[in-house]
Write a protein that binds this DNA or RNA. Structure first.
Lengths: 208, 208
DNA sequence: TCGTGACCCGACATAGTGTTGGATTAACCG
DNA sequence: CGGTTAATCCAACACTATGTCGGGTCACGA
């Protein structure tokens, strides 16, 4: 909000802003936010450090803008998911978990940066929370409808279950991508997560 | 490593080091590591800022020492857990999850700080990883033995399952304690986690 | 009492952030 | 086509925090 107060006679304004964002995303692929100075971002965009502040008031504001764009994509990905249960529940859940994984993969650097930066920045925290909330709401809705038709187990409140499973995905993916240890190999990570989702939601009967 | 090079004629040396650690832990209860300066730690321990460097080479070194002490406690907690299956599996898993939760709760500030600081410090990352690895190894061992006696489901590799469940606990607890949203209420968080563990390991038959 | 050495801190060097005010330049218009 | 305007730029400054160095200080043992 209020990230530029210049007028708009000159044509170069928005281009410069985009250049900063592009520089940030490309630098974040190789270094952490803390290792990138505002000077680096300014130089990358072809402007001086003070001029940076005409476009963003801090490094975090840049991350916020990058994250905001990813979140728009998240909302889109969710809208593309089936609202009703298809013939094969496992297939449906795999699709939605894969959608989550796809967003995470495609914007790996931004996601990792946001996860780290939210710890000291309430605004980033709020944005990330909004994104997670979208997934949780969707998950809760589907679990509830599966329970209504008698396919899914009761016992754990649907919302709590949805929160735990989505937080698990966030953490497990983060560990897999950043090659921490312990972690799950990238090649099987979706299968493992899906397995836990199926058993937690439906019980053992749902195993493949 | 090599965190003090003074000799040891004067008696005050180790006391000062402990004073720094105590100051750090108490300040971390209210502020994040980034909001605490070395000056704050030195003042709290009754020494000047330069003298701080006689005991620790950076703020992170202080965190490492605090975390190392917590980890010693973790190893102790694990040793106190039953190695064999008791009459009621759910009860046994509740005990081990509670042990994890207890450590996390008791050293909440250190745990949260370490989780945040590991993102930019490989040594903290390694220490935390070692702690998680302990839990994962224990979990893997128990799952395997439960499978051998035919009580637990096959399907997901035991190690992968153990990693995912332990990472879930880490993330879910962290969210509950720091009052993020979405999160699970503290009063039910153990029940929710236990429910997912039981269903993932045993299937629906294990529900209470 | 004096020497020794561990310990302490004043003062410095460095690096990054955020701000300011005057110079610069493009667009517009009379 | 030169003059006015206003957006844009950056050199230089102020501030904060980190990490370092070297000389001063104090307790102890001889």
């Amino acid at each position: 909000m209020a990230r530029r107060e210049r007028g708009s006679t000159r044509p170069s304004g928005d281009d410069r802003q985009d250049a900063i964002l592009a520089t940030a995303e490309s630098l974040l692929a190789h270094r952490s936010l803390g290792d990138i100075s505002i000077e680096d971002l300014a130089r990358g965009a072809g402007i001086s450090r003070p001029s940076f502040y005409s476009y963003f008031s801090s490094k975090d504001e840049v991350v916020i803008e990058l994250l905001a764009r990813v979140i728009d994509e998240v909302e889109g990905a969710l809208a593309g998911l089936p609202g009703e249960v298809s013939s094969d529940p496992a297939d449906r859940w795999r699709k939605s978990i894969s959608a989550f994984v796809d967003v995470f993969t495609k914007h790996e650097a931004v996601a990792e940066t946001a996860i780290a930066a939210r710890l000291h920045n309430p605004e980033i925290q709020a944005l990330w929370a909004r994104s997670m909330q979208s997934w949780v709401d969707y998950t809760t809705k589907v679990i509830t409808s599966e329970r209504k038709r008698g396919a899914a187990l009761d016992g754990i409140p649907a919302h709590d279950l949805a929160v735990a499973l989505n937080l698990m995905n966030e953490r497990v993916l983060s560990a897999s991508f950043s090659r921490e240890r312990p972690a799950i190999d990238r090649t099987v990570v979706v299968d493992v997560m899906l397995g836990i989702w199926m058993r937690s939601i439906y019980g053992s009967s749902a195993e493949k």
